[in-house]
């Protein structure tokens, strides 16, 4: 790829933004440039990234899912409740994770039915299921805060891959999740780029009618997409519970802003058809950086949401401008072609 194209890529802009922001924060407070800060950003990105990968797939397919936070906490909270009620092996990590993923897929299947079978617009469908899922959880699963989560999950919160104590400064701890999360990220990337399912998702985002004429089943693709988001959200939910060392059914609500902002900042087109895993990873890191460290710039915590919201709007505006500029360039190209002839 030539240099000009590389520079114009969304990912490049994000890297530049991350670097500039880091330099500004670092100049204000030198303690920013420590391993501990870096590892903290990673830690706060794990759950967000899992959600974001799911949302990326949905957005590329031309849809949107706003039910993922409730699917996440529903799955995580329910897994803990089930563990306790049925006296399952409290030291196990695999059981609650598997439970949460299965519950997440099941909830995703409900979205799939609403969207693929009944043809309800994706935003409305997932907004509706958000309410349904929340009501069901609070009524039938529980509405109380659980602080004594199963031991396996609790211990996992401090399962560190690396512990480094620098000569000066605080202890830096890198959570072991960095490995599985990296693997999952790579798998989603391969899923999108190397499988027919992945390409069908892009095709669907590019045009429904053309995709149908290709012989790709729209319904089946959509159904898989929302189940995949459900599964990823379930996993994100249980990891959230583990990392927080508590299961609170009221948590995660409102996190859709951060996640959708991260995915759109990462270059996914809200109109569908475009988006990359790498961009999404960078988007998540940028949002984590802002949320965790704006305070070092003397900006109060309450401004964080405003900052993230503003970033979302900036990203969408940039997309729209880029789109119209592209259209103009296209015209010039055809004129040049005509001139050559």
């Amino acid at each position: 790829m030539d240099l000009k194209k590389l520079l114009l890529r969304n990912e490049t802009a994000l890297i530049v933004a991350i670097v500039i922001l880091s330099v500004i924060i670092g100049m204000k407070s030198p303690e920013f440039f420590t391993l501990s800060t870096l590892f903290d950003i990673f830690r706060s990105s794990f759950v967000q990234l899992l959600f974001a990968l799911g949302v990326l797939v949905v957005i590329v397919s031309g849809g949107i899912d706003v039910s993922f936070p409730i699917v996440g906490i529903f799955s995580g909270y329910s897994a803990v409740v089930i563990m306790q009620r049925f006296n399952l092996d409290t030291n196990s990590l695999a059981i609650p994770i598997a439970l949460a993923i299965v519950i997440g897929i099941a909830l995703g299947a409900v979205n799939s039915i609403a969207i693929a079978s009944f043809g309800i617009p994706t935003l409305i469908a997932t907004l509706g299921t958000t309410g349904i899922f929340r009501g069901l959880m609070l009524t039938f699963i529980g509405s109380s805060f659980i602080s004594d989560i199963p031991a396996g999950l609790d211990k996992f919160a401090t399962a560190d891959l690396l512990k480094i104590t620098p000569a000066h400064g605080t202890l830096a701890r890198l959570h072991v999740l960095i490995i599985p999360i990296t693997i999952i990220t790579i798998l989603v990337s391969l899923l999108l780029s190397r499988t027919m399912f992945g390409r069908s998702v892009y095709a669907l985002g590019g045009g429904v009618e053309a995709t149908r004429r290709l012989g790709i089943s729209i319904k089946r693709t959509q159904a898989k997409v929302y189940m995949l988001v459900g599964g990823l959200s379930g996993l994100a939910g249980i990891l959230y519970v583990s990392l927080q060392r508590k299961a609170n059914p009221y948590d995660l609500a409102g996190s859709e802003l951060d996640v959708i902002a991260a995915v759109v900042l990462g270059g996914a087109s809200i109109l569908g058809g475009y988006g990359t895993v790498f961009g999404t990873v960078l988007g998540v890191l940028l949002i984590s950086l802002i949320k965790g460290n704006l305070i070092l710039l003397g900006i109060s915590g309450s401004w964080q949401r405003a900052a993230v919201g503003a970033l979302l709007l900036i990203a969408i505006t940039a997309q729209a401008i880029g789109e119209s500029r592209k259209a103009k360039n296209r015209r010039v190209v055809t004129n040049d072609e005509a001139a050559e002839k």
């Binding site: 390409r199 892009y202 590019g206 045009g207 004429r213 290709l214 058809g273 475009y274």
Partner: peptide, 11 residues
Amino acid sequence: IFQDFSLLPNL
């Protein structure tokens, strides 16, 4: 080959 060609612009 339909008039709109049924091609996907993003691919």
